[in-house]
Design a protein around this nucleic acid. Sequence first.
DNA 1: ACAAAGATTGAACGGCTGTTTAGAGTAATA
DNA 2: TATTACTCTAAACAGCCGTTCAATCTTTGT
Lengths: 219, 219
Amino acid sequence: MRSISNDRTTRAVIRDEALRLFAAHGPDAVTVRQIATAAGVSPGLVIHHFTSKEGLRDAVDQHVLATFEVMLGEMTTGAGPELFDPAATGSLTELMATHLPPASPIPDYLRRLLLSDTEASRVLFRRLFDVSQATLAALAQAGLASPGRDPAVRAALLLANDLAVLLLRDRLADALGVDPLSREGMARWAGELLTIYGAGLLAPPDSGQISNEHEGERP
Amino acid sequence: MRSISNDRTTRAVIRDEALRLFAAHGPDAVTVRQIATAAGVSPGLVIHHFTSKEGLRDAVDQHVLATFEVMLGEMTTGAGPELFDPAATGSLTELMATHLPPASPIPDYLRRLLLSDTEASRVLFRRLFDVSQATLAALAQAGLASPGRDPAVRAALLLANDLAVLLLRDRLADALGVDPLSREGMARWAGELLTIYGAGLLAPPDSGQISNEHEGERP
DNA sequence: ACAAAGATTGAACGGCTGTTTAGAGTAATA
DNA sequence: TATTACTCTAAACAGCCGTTCAATCTTTGT
């Protein structure tokens, strides 16, 4: 049956449609019937596969966590160029823009997940915090950044600043006229972040970037 | 009837209980009956005063927005000392910690509001963004900060970094063992933020603070 | 080919939701 | 005091919710 252009299990289809709807409207605002319709099945089948709506939520959480584990794994594996870029300190934003399709529901889902007071939320944040701490330590070892007087707080601050773009995406897109997760948005954001991380708020533009390809800019 | 230790209108009591419950569990997870019980009235009366549950949400939104308008007004009025502190760039965090009781539901409500895709959310963020832009311009005029190559993005970045503490409060408290909105948490957070905003990530500890009372630290 | 197991459906059930309605108490007006 | 207006309640209503159930259709194992 599921042969032409569809090799996903029905279970996976339901899970993915739930992810999409949960990301767009929040789990509480989405009904089992809506998920079933979106997946082209009956409401009973959704329950049959996931026992309950909360079971479905858990399955979606687990799937998203696994996706992130893969992304984080690829990051620490293929590391190298971003080590010379203080702003790419495990930049979640860039990581997602690179590894995820442009219309992926995962950023929106992550936004809700991180603010949801669930176990999955705590586990994910803890993981991101550990990565942030490790990255800061590595940068310090390489002499590219100071660990600061309070390394744990500094690592948390860098992580929070990174996540802020994700969490406030819609509001920022409104205010700036550019989606901060788009190519142009990320470039403009990173430009300011690099300057500040490089030499502080008083620094003149164009300081801070350690390796900029051409310095042809001259207004 | 409402005389001893209660000069609030019944309407106001309902509104405040709704604010408290909405902040704690989210508007969708709270029922009209729960609000009515918390306020000590019948469910019908809640509807009678606010027409519908959504009307109640709007009233709460409006009340929170008005509260913030007052706080922002007091900020720009009593300005002065914080102008010399680049990190206090309209610091929402500090503003709320100062003007709100420690158990106020408003921080939690704000967190949900800013991510809710409602008109109130857009209005509030736009207002905060304008304040951030104005503050950055004032700091630049005073020679205390550079407006950056992209002033709008820089103002948005400073605002987002400020709001991040609020949005991720629970997760940060988990990871750091300190509520970042508590006195100790704010002090530690501001310490790192001042250093980075002062001279960047490479700066040694204790640079960046323009007016630190004693420099007795020497490890 | 036959039987067992699993996938799937349509209809139904009880419970909870926001809201309505009719009416009882209470204060203000005249 | 009679009337009007307002606050408030108890009960009920219709609708939607997650979930269950019995019965089919489809696949798998032997």
